[in-house]
């Protein structure tokens, strides 16, 4: 099949899209700079114009500043199930599917009544109990973004469902303003969730100035018994000048690592 240049205004999106309708900054930048390198997939379905079934993101970014788009056109008529299958195959050839896409495969297979179990890579998704449960839920947009981008691990992203919209706004704003690594985000969300479990407001903690203050204040609130002991221990440690002590009172560990620094 040859690559053709198809005018944007002749293309419509099929309703078999698996990815979230969200365009990451890095893809926008890349398309602006280099254009669309990997052609999108279209079908004519015997009608006028073209139906897009793979490359939704490239298309939605490209249509903002391109007149035509590189595409491979399938002349034969494709069923929605075939479009889903080809879309999955194409994506799998270059990357892993996001959690959001896996969930959407289950949803779309049900909507279009597709029997996709004969394809082993899809069968494992369709048989996964946890994914099936997730497919039954409607998540707020921000959770879908995290599930789609992988910016948060699955558990942290899903645990955001226990936050209300206002709280979700605080969390995403904090992530926008202060740089947290992926694992720090995981810790932060876990601590915030525990604050909620204690029926307390999360806002006051997120208003702290920096990462350290946010995490410290949360730990004090979540682990009051442990934090008190830790404070006592650190005060004592300062007095005897024992040096660095590598430990976390927030995990039970069979070992305590003592690092004694001898000056000169």
């Amino acid at each position: 099949m040859e690559i053709q240049k198809i005018p944007i205004n002749l293309i419509k999106e099929a309703d078999t899209r698996l990815s979230l309708n969200y365009n990451p900054e890095n893809l926008i930048e890349s398309i602006k700079k280099f254009g669309i390198i990997n052609p999108v997939k279209l079908t004519t379905n015997g009608k006028e114009g073209f139906l897009l079934f793979s490359g939704f993101r490239r298309f939605s970014i490209g249509k903002n500043f391109l007149n035509d788009i590189p595409a491979i056109v399938f002349e034969e008529s494709l069923s929605p199930c075939e479009m889903i299958l080809l879309n999955v195959k194409e994506n799998l050839a270059v990357r892993k599917l996001s959690l959001y896409e896996k969930i959407n495969i289950i949803r779309k297979a049900e909507i279009f009544q597709c029997d996709l179990r004969k394809y082993s890579f899809i069968k494992s998704i369709l048989n996964n109990e946890k994914l099936k449960n997730m497919a039954k839920r409607d998540y707020p947009e921000i959770i879908n973004i995290y599930l789609d981008t992988g910016e948060l691990d699955k558990k942290s992203a899903l645990s955001l469902r226990f936050f209300n919209n206002k709280e979700l706004e605080f969390v995403s704003k904090t992530f926008g303003n202060i740089h947290f690594t992926r694992s720090e985000k995981q810790i932060l969300i876990d601590l915030l969730l525990r604050i909620k479990e204690k029926e307390k407001e999360i806002k006051i903690f997120l208003e702290k100035e920096n990462k350290k203050e946010i995490l410290e204040s949360l730990k004090k609130e979540v682990f009051p018994f442990t934090a008190k002991l830790e404070n006592k221990f650190q005060t004592l440690n300062k007095k005897i000048k024992m040096g660095k002590l590598k430990h976390s009172p927030f995990f039970e560990s069979p070992q305590l690592i003592l690092e004694i620094v001898f000056e000169d």
């Binding site: 204690k198 029926e199 009051p224 018994f225 442990t226 009172p249 995990f251 039970e252």
Partner: peptide, 20 residues
Amino acid sequence: LLKGELIEGFDKKYRYPFLL
């Protein structure tokens, strides 16, 4: 249950801290 002070044990399960 989840209001309690739960840390991570050797077995990665949540449990109260040793002294508690």
